[in-house]
Amino acid sequence: MKSDIHKLSIPIMPLGNPFPPRHCSLCPKGSAIDRDNKHRLIDKRKRFKAGEVLARQDEAAGMLFVIHEGYCKASVASGDNVFISRFYVPGDIMALDAVEGGKYLTTIQAATAAEVCHIDIARLFMVAEKEPAVAAAVIKFLCRDNGFIVEKLRRYANKHAEARIAAFLVEFYEMHLRIGRPETTLRLPFSREEIASYLDLKIETVSRALKSLEQQNLITLHRVRTVTINSYLGLKRFI
């Protein structure tokens, strides 16, 4: 089947280079809050190994985080259970849900080796009181974060397993499109167990759904974590 991946126009936010250089561009997100780091809000870029914790659920929140490179995940502990609540790609701002209450609502971990920049929350709001542009950027990102939650419910609620997997692949692909990475062969940085937790499915159900989508020639599975999207519109029809 010939790929129809480009039939539907999606806004792409180019970074100049499909893969950001090693200097800190902060993708578009950091510069949108503090252009050229004028107020020195963006600092403490730090490297994390896969599995390292950036923030822990219920701890006092002092920082927001912007992914420069790599992938992260957020999880929520409830009793003895831990659920994956969100995946993050380069350019994403993490821990926005901690702004109002002063504590982290999720545990944020590096899913792969990652480089992450830090934004001091107290300093951010001090600057926002004097700079309307910074305040407007913060409000915009908070609204967008809330919009993501609504969109997740729309995509996944009351959907069968195959539809959830299709929606997840569409979501992951579109997240990369927005940061200027249009490749249709995706290296999934998350395990099937993590994807199952995110979609509220069993691991074996995830495997069966992926195989079913491959049999329909909508995707091609390669190694355990590598998948090629053959038909973007075909996957979108499940949503």
Rank of each mutant, 00 (worst) to 15 (best):
V138E: 00
V76N: 05
H39D: 10
A61M: 00
F190C: 06
A110E: 01
D145R: 05
L153P: 04
F168H: 14
L199E: 07
I119Q: 07
E115A: 02
F141V: 00
I229R: 05
G62D: 01
V66G: 02
N17E: 13
S191I: 06
V66A: 02
I93Q: 04
R187V: 13
V99F: 13
R35K: 10
K159V: 08
V170K: 15
V150G: 11
P18I: 10
E162H: 10
R225G: 14
G147W: 00
E69W: 06
G30Y: 07
V227W: 05
E162L: 14
V206N: 08
S9I: 14
Y71K: 03
R223M: 04
D80F: 09
A137G: 00
H118I: 04
V206W: 06
L64F: 05
R237F: 15
A114P: 03
K38I: 11
K44C: 03
D34H: 04
I239G: 09
I239W: 12
C117P: 10
R181G: 04
V224M: 15
L199G: 07
H23G: 12
F190P: 03
K7H: 13
Y71F: 02
G62E: 06
V89R: 12
F65N: 00
D80M: 02
P182C: 02
K2S: 12
M13V: 15
D36M: 13
R155L: 13
E183H: 10
S191E: 08
V127S: 12
H222T: 08
V66T: 04
T205S: 02
I239R: 12
G147M: 01
D36C: 14
T106W: 08
L15H: 08
T226G: 05
V76W: 03
L8D: 13
E52H: 01
T184S: 06
L235K: 10
P14D: 11
S9R: 08
A137E: 00
N146I: 15
F87L: 12
T106P: 04
L169A: 15
A133K: 08
R164M: 14
R123W: 09
T106Y: 11
R187M: 09
R47C: 06
C72Y: 05
P90W: 02
R225I: 12
R56G: 11
K73R: 11
H160W: 14
S3V: 13
I5K: 08
E174C: 13
G147T: 01
A209D: 06
D120R: 09
M94A: 07
N217K: 15
G102W: 09
T205Y: 02
L218T: 07
Q109H: 15
H160C: 14
F125V: 06
G91E: 08
V138K: 00
